[in-house]
Design a protein around this nucleic acid. Structure first.
Length: 921
DNA sequence: ATAGGGTTAG
């Protein structure tokens, strides 16, 4: 976590990108005179009436009854006192009906009003009727009142339009507005426009918003605060912050709402520093602005999002000072802020102390615990919530928040329970809830459940599609995986699972297959997954749904997995056409895709083209150079990143340490591990230690690696031991290797990979008895090692080669190509290196085994199918062996081709007889 | 009489 917290409210200077948003106080002499000056037509002549209200005993009584929500009583009172003809009293009552959403009483009053000839044409009362109905959530009734009138005025039109907007009938509101300006004699005024602008905002239609903006200028209404505020709001919501700032800057008069709207707009668009600045300007403003509930409730989520608990606390104390902390929304926002910042105790205290709680309060406090994966506490609170005497009703946010807890620990049972629960509460069809379940099931490995929910969604949105595509991208195609799994069981690998139904098998799969058979499925999915994802993607397009950034990001992820460069390029073009290219997430995944497809230069180009670079953009390019073995370049970028004003985070260091590891930069790697904590205040996590252990191991410093494992504050996991074991194998340290293997097998007894490494370790030391023993164990337990496998993408199609593959129709041809190649490179020094053939075989047999290695097949096939000079890009599921590495170097020279091989860890660029890894991998 | 900004989830 960041160790430095900005001083409260005397905040950071502007970020270089954000400099346009500087608030300059408006000087009345300059800008003001350029603008048409708006003068309100209405004058204040109500003083006698308000006076009347205070002294008239009838009105006093009505007001009192309305205040205490006794609306029926108020109506009875009017009837008793024969005051039903008192327009003012009826008006007050209608207003109260609206305020308290009492449509029953409202209807009764309506009936009385419409019966009376005296009232039926009363503009004021009818306007109040229209408003009453819309406040009660029945804009249709408003419309009926409106349509029933012979004569209308602008007040009535405005009341109807605003009622439509209040009830989110945005299209309807805009239609009414069009009708108003085209067929009536009325001119929209400073009341009409804010409503219409809000309707545009509700539809996220900035285009129309700009049209209204233009109208406001022409009609001289632009200087109205309400119009200006509405414009600030729409621009902020639609991502047009610059326009919002412009409106704000040119407003001749501003009020607190204007400032609040600016904060909100900045926040919506991620300009958090500007939020604080604006907030600070409110506090020190010369007009004596005082923050209100809206201000507090807008600024707190920003502190929450940024983890700025110190600022949050300052806001908290300010709220107390202003007496706003008892407000429900403020209290909820405070609870949220504290829990998001990790101060759960404070959040809990505020929650417990407040005697005024609503669903949001409960949801927020639940969200605090679910966010940190506290399943028990989350479900306890959910139960507790419904035991409240007034039966707190759960809503879709409750489900979404509880769901979070299941996700953290992949709690499939909880997830299902929760799904059932949401059915019982009729929340299962909520768009967000349904999508969340698709994504959650997918994440927990249950793609079929995910699909089930997905196909049940009546109107699938972009997000529904994203959830399922994302699931496929992460887990592979579940149907095919299931088929594969059944095949496995029939081949005698897991006989006890044979009797189970296919569905139950699948349920077991979440825990078993994806973990235990991870390698096998990964091998399969690398072939099938991008197709599946892309099919869904195309289906989505043909359904007329425009992919958003997330879908694109997922597709790039799928391309990255396969090094499906052509596919990736296709989608790159698509993003250019769809104007999504400047999205930071898209940019980021694009950089990653190119890096993982072997085109680090393309990554750099995309990176350079990004107007806005965030931490993630830097992280991904640093990591990209890392897997390509360009350690120095990665370090250079790491320095540049800091100079650009961005702070490296945990992910940055993973990329950086990996880069050091691949390039053998041991000293630098150790330096960075130290600096992480001392200089940047980032606690190294297991992943970081894993990189360093890997780095030391690769460099042959096995003792150092072991020392680090034993000294690090976290419990080493299987990944770390496995990496050390693999280093022991490379450097032939049998003693340490055997000990490490023991550790590893205790942690993960079912992992074939461990046995293979161990067996290879024995083989490397010539201990063939032990090799046989290990292989026997594997046979008995039914564990199978992954076959070596390589892929090559040609013309958008993926060709896959398994070691010793003879099934391919071009098999003869390929072997022929290889024999000729072998002859060519023999002349320039190729000697088969049989050290990596870890079987008990005669030398000639070993050489024959070498010839069948999948990468050699893929290279041969690639040369056969491509034109002279074309670069070959090959993907391999395991580490490339010494012999293939040697051969590839020489081939690159002999046939003057660049060959790029991605193995399971990194890239090798073979060119002119050399490899980019400088034979260190 | 009619208007603008604001809490959880995404």
């Amino acid at each position: 976590m960041a160790s430095t917290v900005a001083p409260p409210l005397s905040l950071h200077h502007h970020h270089p990108h954000h400099t346009p948003f500087v608030h300059t106080p408006i000087s009345n002499t300059t800008k003001h005179s350029l603008l048409p000056i708006f003068t309100p037509k209405a004058t204040l002549s109500l003083s006698s009436k308000t006076h009347n209200k205070k002294t008239n005993p009838l009105l006093q009584e009505i007001n009192k009854l309305c205040e205490s929500r006794n609306l029926t009583e108020a109506l009875n009172f009017l009837q008793r006192t024969n005051a039903l003809n008192n327009a003012e009293a009826m008006g007050v009552l209608l207003q109260a009906c609206g305020r308290h959403k009492d449509i029953e009483t409202g209807r009764k009053v309506h009936e009385l009003v419409s019966k009376s000839t005296q009232f039926s044409n009363d503009f004021v009362l009818n306007t109040r009727l229209v408003t009453m109905y819309s406040m009660c959530g029945s804009p249709l009734d408003s419309r009926l009142v409106f349509d029933g009138l012979q004569r209308k005025n602008l007040f009535l039109w405005n009341a109807l339009v605003s009622g439509y907007v209040r009830n989110e009938l945005y299209h309807g509101a805009i239609s009414l507005f069009v009708e108003l300006i085209s067929v009536t004699e009325f001119k929209p005024d400073n009341f009409t426009l804010p409503c219409v602008i809000k309707a545009c905002a509700g539809l996220l239609d900035v285009g129309l918003g700009k049209v209204i903006h233009g109208m406001a200028m022409k009609m001289g209404l632009i200087s109205d605060v309400f119009v200006g505020n509405a414009l600030i709001a729409i621009y902020g919501k639609c991502g047009f912050v610059e326009d919002a700032v412009e409106v704000f800057e040119y407003m001749p008069e501003r009020n607190l709402v204007s400032w609040n709207s600016m904060i909100s707009g900045f926040s919506e668009n991620g300009f958090f520093k500007e939020c604080y600045n604006t907030f600070r300007e409110i506090l020190k403003s010369e007009e004596g602005l005082v923050p209100d509930v809206a201000t507090i409730v807008t600024i707190l989520p920003i502190c929450a999002a940024e983890g700025e608990v110190v600022i949050g606390m300052v806001v908290h104390s300010l709220a107390v000072k202003l007496g706003l902390n008892h407000d429900l929304m403020v209290n909820n926002a405070l609870i949220h802020m504290y829990s998001k910042c990790g101060y759960l105790t404070e959040a809990q205290t505020l929650f417990a102390k407040s005697d005024n709680k609503n669903v949001v309060s409960w949801n927020t406090v639940i969200g605090g615990y679910s966010g940190e994966g506290n399943v028990c506490r989350t479900f306890d609170l959910l139960r507790e919530m419904q035991m409240e005497p007034w039966k707190m009703k759960v809503n879709e946010v409750t489900i979404l928040n509880v769901l979070q807890a299941c996700l953290e620990e992949s709690e499939m049972l909880c997830l299902k329970e929760l799904h059932g629960y949401s059915f019982r509460h009729g929340l299962q069809d909520d768009e967000l809830v349904a999508n969340a379940f698709v994504a959650a099931y997918a994440k927990c490995g249950s793609l079929s459940s995910a699909e089930h929910v997905f196909y049940g969604i009546e109107t699938k949105t972009v997000n529904s599609w994203n959830a399922l595509i994302g699931g496929h991208a992460q887990n592979g195609d579940p149907r095919k995986a299931l088929d594969l799994y059944i095949q496995m069981t029939y081949s005698g690998l897991a006989p006890d699972w044979k009797m189970l139904s296919a569905r139950a098998l699948f349920d077991r799969m979440e825990n078993k297959i994806l973990v235990s058979w991870n390698a096998m499925i990964a091998g399969y999915s690398q072939n099938a997954l991008p197709d599946e994802s892309l099919n869904l993607f195309r289906q989505m397009l043909s359904n007329g749904i425009q992919p958003y950034e997330i879908a694109i990001t997922t597709i790039f992820g799928a391309c990255s997995q396969l090094s499906a460069l052509r596919l990736g390029k296709e989608i790159h073009c698509f993003t250019l056409k769809a104007h999504l290219i400047q999205d930071v997430f898209v940019g980021c995944s694009l950089i990653d895709m190119y890096a993982k497809s072997g085109c680090i230069e393309q990554s750099q180009r995309v990176f350079d083209s990004l107007k806005e670079k965030d931490e993630a953009s830097w992280n991904v390019i640093i990591a990209g150079y890392g897997i390509h073995g360009h350690g120095n370049k990665a370090m250079e970028l790491f320095e540049k990143m800091q100079r650009s004003g961005l702070k490296p985070d945990g992910f940055t260091f993973i990329g950086l340490l990996m880069a050091c590891s691949h390039a053998g930069l041991v000293t630098d790697g150790l330096k960075y591990l130290n600096q992480m904590q001392s200089l940047f205040g980032i606690e190294p996590k297991l992943e970081h230690y894993a990189c360093v252990v890997d780095m030391l191991g690769r460099a042959g410093q096995l003792d150092e690696a072991l020392k680090l494992i034993l000294e690090m504050p976290e419990e080493p996991d299987a990944g770390i031991w496995s990496s050390l074991l693999s280093s022991c194998r490379i450097y032939g340290d049998l003693d340490m290797g055997v000990k490490v293997a023991e550790k590893l097998l205790a942690l993960e007894p079912d992992k074939a990979e461990t046995y293979v490494l161990l067996s290879n370790l024995y083989a490397g030391s010539g201990k063939w008895d032990d090799v046989r023993r290990v292989r026997q164990i594997m046979k008995e337990t039914g564990l199978q090692k992954d076959a070596g496998r390589s892929w090559i993408e040609l013309g958008g199609e993926v060709f896959s080669f398994v070691v010793g593959d003879e099934l391919l129709s071009e098999s003869e041809e390929i072997q022929d190509v290889w024999r000729r190649l072998e002859e060519k490179i023999r002349i320039i020094g190729y000697k088969p290196n049989t050290d990596s053939v870890l079987h008990e075989l005669r030398e000639e047999e070993k050489i024959e085994v070498l010839r069948g290695h999948s990468e050699k097949l893929a290279i041969s096939f690639g040369l056969l199918k491509t034109t002279k000079g074309a670069t070959l890009r090959i993907c391999k599921n395991l580490r490339i062996c010494v012999d293939c590495h040697n051969a590839a170097k020489l081939i690159s020279k002999a046939v003057e081709r660049e060959i790029i091989v991605r193995d399971n860890k990194r890239f090798h660029h073979f060119k002119d007889g050399f490899c980019s890894c400088q034979d260190y991998w």
